[in-house]
Nucleic acid binder design. Structure first.
Length: 828
RNA sequence: GCCUGGGUGGUGGAACUGGUAGACACAAGGGACUUAAAAUCCCUCGACCCUUGCGGUCAUGCGGGUUCGAUUCCCGCCCCAGGCACCA
């Protein structure tokens, strides 16, 4: 074997060998416990980046580790292949999105293979393939028939640059999540998935997913935004109907002195028509409509409003209160109308001061004798307290009064307890080309008609040229949009919008269990064997997008009879970003490290090792070229243990018993301690960095023993045992070098098919242990005692220690605390 | 404003249930080998103090507390990152 570690040839050799022997392929082996390990599949953007390398290295360690532990591990890979970048790149390069996408897939697949990941490539698929999205179209039709997919006209988020609608989850700080362009509101007919039908279950399960990181669950809870309150009616003074408000503070109802409504509220027209204020109202509405969504939601925006000229009646005081249009009231939340309580809500307070509206104090702090007068207030009192000036409810606590006031209005049919959510239905129509067509036909006579199942898939035509302005060519392509109504046969028009690409990623994990299944989307038997995903690994950026949509989709598919699980992902690991020089790697920062170059310079094992060693997986990873160098150095050290001692090691048998000198028995102890530590670090904590550190310690100790050149017949057996441990334990992280060294030691099989090493508890136990002696909690001495010493023996040994006696001198010993095998604390 | 993480040497990080703070690396400095370089190997490496000892004191964002003992638990505060936010 080569004296020097040179990864190039050995990595290629093993990748080919693994491929040929089909060692990564799995089936439904009922005799073994299944484990479904999944990393978020990549978008085929062109090249693998370091974030991918890190993500997939983490996953591969777990996959290989569990394989060696005897699990039947499903570890698939595929491509999230629809999406806008393909269109943009195709326009720029004068090619077709399909060609661009498949070329990228080919390149990136080769990159992943170079990294030696243990994927079952026989299950690979790309979501832009009709054999995948046809089933998605089937889901859509079945969801349409169940009422889970529906069409409505509403204000939606529109990105002018991407020329498409965006879901609420895809708007970040008022801007498009892809291109950062400010989003505007546009009224359009759109398809929606009724995710709100599952809102309670989605929220409920955030408390039943102990394997998820707390912060992801909290983010989803925030996003769902449940708040409990009351829906109350304020009759119009004119007697022509009433205004519905949502409030969480029904206890402040007696303090409601005016009404604020969103400019888009459908009743505004009726309220201002024919009034003296009509012109001013229309002007105000125009002005607010024009301001972009993000401006309107900005904290700094001045609170402005305009009187409509109409009044309504406070249902408990009977007083007439003016109705205002206000720029801070959102149509999208609650009912779009807010009862304004200026004494107890800061926004209403500011608004009332600005427009000279009356204040009425109805809550006082519980520990205050008398409520402040309106003039004494410098800001709203927003906390709960005790009701004052509130008729029969005076004296009740806020909490009691909320129920009591709502109940008394409910008797008159003017109020009810209700729950409000921030979560909106998922808008899935995209005015884009490179996506799965929505399988719907519009007929003048029959209306909205789903494409019959037998006609699926509605194939995306691949022979189209993209429009230079970035818009979709589908609406101008007769061949595509001209259709026959499936019901009456009349000429009809096909839906030309495509589905949000997040629909594809909402069920791909289930399809991996049966990617070749042709009779339906999911083969019941196989999907039952594999689902749910036991461990999912990916970036935190999907906390409320993909991870929420997938949860919804799985629940919907369950109710449609396709799945028998409630949640897609049992355990979730969100790995940190790869950082260099303090920033996320990006072209604009010029701090991108190219995996290809790194693999070329150091080999895949070194790159994998560095990604795992530099920090624990959930933290950000600071890229360091010198650190990579260090990882390579370590693998070279590992290599040389075998290459420089091959004669001794290859002819030896792994140690199996007999007397040992002190240094060899120490090495043996270290070997078994390391097996234990590495096993537990990977299995219980995913702390690969400390697992690697432990292996490094063992390697260091092997070198120490070898350098002392002991003349001991047990030398090679003990070193061989240690070296085999190093190789086997490191094999999930650095599989190529491990298989190479394993083979050099004379083993025939692959490490992936070798059982994970077991530690021997007896080898770990030492005859003597080091005990730390503290005096008053401060470290003063160390003593070595037999491992089986009793507490009493320990105590007297400590008290006899010279340094300890010096410290104690003639002071009386008050107390002695003994922690067996660890330390003694003497209190004087 | 609310919520969730986090703050440890020059750097990445370790310390798992309250029990030796800084494992393992990186960088730096010194040395060995070498004609030289690379590679490799060895030593030093939180700060301060002195009587230079297998010494003492301080030290895990800051201030308190509980405890024989606190990076770890409790209370108050500061800073950083992320999420939500005119949400009624």
């Amino acid at each position: 074997m080569e004296q020097k570690y040179s990864p190039k040839s050995i990595e290629k050799k093993w990748q080919e060998h693994w491929d040929k022997s089909q060692v990564f392929k799995v089936g439904e082996d009922k005799g073994k416990e299944k484990y479904y390990l999944l990393e978020m599949f990549p978008y085929p953007s062109g090249r693998i980046h370091m974030g991918h390398v890190r993500n997939y290295s983490i996953g591969d360690v777990v996959a290989r580790f569990l394989r060696m532990q005897g699990y039947n591990v499903l570890h698939p890979m595929g491509w999230d292949a629809f999406g806008m970048p393909a269109e943009n790149a195709a326009i720029k390069a004068g090619t077709h999105p399909a060609k661009w996408t498949y070329d990228n897939i080919d390149y990136m697949r080769a990159q992943l293979r170079q990294l030696g990941f243990s994927y079952d490539w026989s299950r690979e698929f790309a979501t832009c393939d009709p054999s995948y999205y046809r089933w998605e179209q089937l889901f859509f039709i079945q969801m349409f028939e169940k009422g889970l997919a529906y069409r409505k006209s509403s204000y939606v988020n529109w990105c002018p640059r991407c020329q498409t609608v965006l879901a609420n989850e895809q708007v970040e700080g008022g801007a498009c999540w892809r291109c950062d362009e400010p989003v505007i509101q546009k009224e359009m007919e759109q398809w929606f998935f009724r995710i709100t039908d599952y809102v309670e279950e989605l929220l409920d399960y955030t408390y039943k997913l102990p394997g998820w990181p707390e912060r992801v669950l909290v983010m989803q809870q925030n996003w769902i935004g449940k708040s409990t309150g009351s829906r109350l009616l304020f009759p119009l003074e004119s007697g022509e109907g009433s205004i519905q408000v949502f409030t969480t503070r029904a206890d402040t109802l007696f303090g409601a002195t005016f009404m604020s409504m969103a400019p888009e509220h459908p009743m505004v027209e009726q309220l201002c028509r024919g009034k003296q204020q009509e012109g001013a109202v229309r002007e105000f509405i125009e002005k607010t409509k024009q301001s972009k969504r993000n401006d309107r939601e900005a904290e700094l925006l001045e609170k402005e409003g305009v009187f409509t000229g109409s009044y309504c009646i406070n249902p408990v005081t009977g007083l007439k209160i003016p109705i205002y249009i206000a720029n801070f009231v959102l149509m999208a939340y609650g009912t779009g109308a807010v009862m304004a309580v200026p004494a107890h809500d800061q926004r209403d307070f500011e608004f009332a001061r600005k427009y000279g509206l009356p204040l009425r104090v109805v809550i006082k702090p519980a520990d205050m004798e008398k409520a402040p007068t309106p003039d004494e207030l410098t800001q709203a009192f927003e906390d709960d307290g005790v009701l004052v000036d509130s008729g029969p409810f005076t004296g009740k606590s806020s909490a009691e009064a909320r129920d009591a006031i709502t109940a008394s209005l409910a008797e008159k049919g003017m109020g009810e307890k209700t729950v409000q959510y921030r979560l909106r239905d998922w808008g899935i129509s995209r005015q884009r080309y490179w996506g799965a067509p929505i399988p719907i036909i519009y007929c003048e006579k029959c209306g909205v008609v789903p494409v019959p199942e037998k006609d699926l898939p509605v194939k995306l035509p691949l022979d189209l040229e993209l429009l230079p302005n970035g818009g979709s060519p589908l609406p101008v392509n007769e061949e595509f949009y001209k259709a026959e109504c499936p019901k009456c046969g009349a000429a009809a028009r096909r839906e030309t919008d495509t589905m949000d690409t997040f629909v594809e990623s909402s069920w791909y994990f289930a399809r991996y269990s049966c990617p070749d299944f042709a009779e339906g989307p999911l083969d019941k038997e196989r999907v039952r064997y594999w689902m749910p995903v036991d461990q999912y690994i990916g970036g935190i950026e999907h906390a409320v997008l993909h991870l929420l949509y997938s949860r919804f989709f799985v629940k919907a598919l369950r109710d449609m009879g396709y799945l028998n699980v409630d949640e897609p992902f049992l355990n979730l690991l969100t790995q940190g970003m790869v950082i260099k020089d303090g920033f996320k790697m990006s072209k604009s920062k010029g701090n991108v490290v190219d995996p290809d170059q790194m693999i070329k310079a150091y080999g895949a094992d070194t790159v994998r090792l560095f990604c795992l060693f530099a920090s624990p997986p959930e933290k950000d990873l600071d890229w360091s070229d010198q650190g990579v160098e260090g990882s390579f150095r370590f693998l070279s050290r590992m290599w040389r243990i075998v290459s420089e001692n091959l004669d001794g090691l290859a002819s030896a048998k792994s140690y199996s018993g007999g007397e040992l000198s002190q240094s060899l028995s120490q090495l043996r102890r270290k070997t078994h301690q390391t097996i234990k530590k590495v096993t537990e670090d990977i299995r219980d904590r995913f702390h690969f960095n400390t697992a690697i550190a432990a292996i490094m310690e063992l390697v260091n100790q092997i070198y120490q023993v070898l350098e002392s050149k002991p003349k001991d017949s047990a030398l090679w057996p003990v070193v061989r045992e240690a070296a085999e441990a190093v190789i086997a334990l490191s094999s999930p992280m650095v599989p190529h070098i491990a298989d190479e060294l394993w083979q050099a030691l004379g083993h025939k099989g692959l490490l992936l098919e070798t059982p994970w090493p077991k530690w021997d508890e007896r080898a770990i136990e030492a005859e003597e242990v080091l005990i730390v002696v503290q005096i008053n909690g401060k470290l003063r001495s160390r003593i070595t005692v037999p491992a089986d010493a009793t507490n009493g023996e320990l105590e007297s040994a400590a008290l006899q220690d010279a340094r300890v006696r010096e410290f104690i001198a003639d002071k009386p010993v008050k107390k002695v605390i003994v922690v067996p095998k660890k330390l003694i604390n003497i209190v004087i």
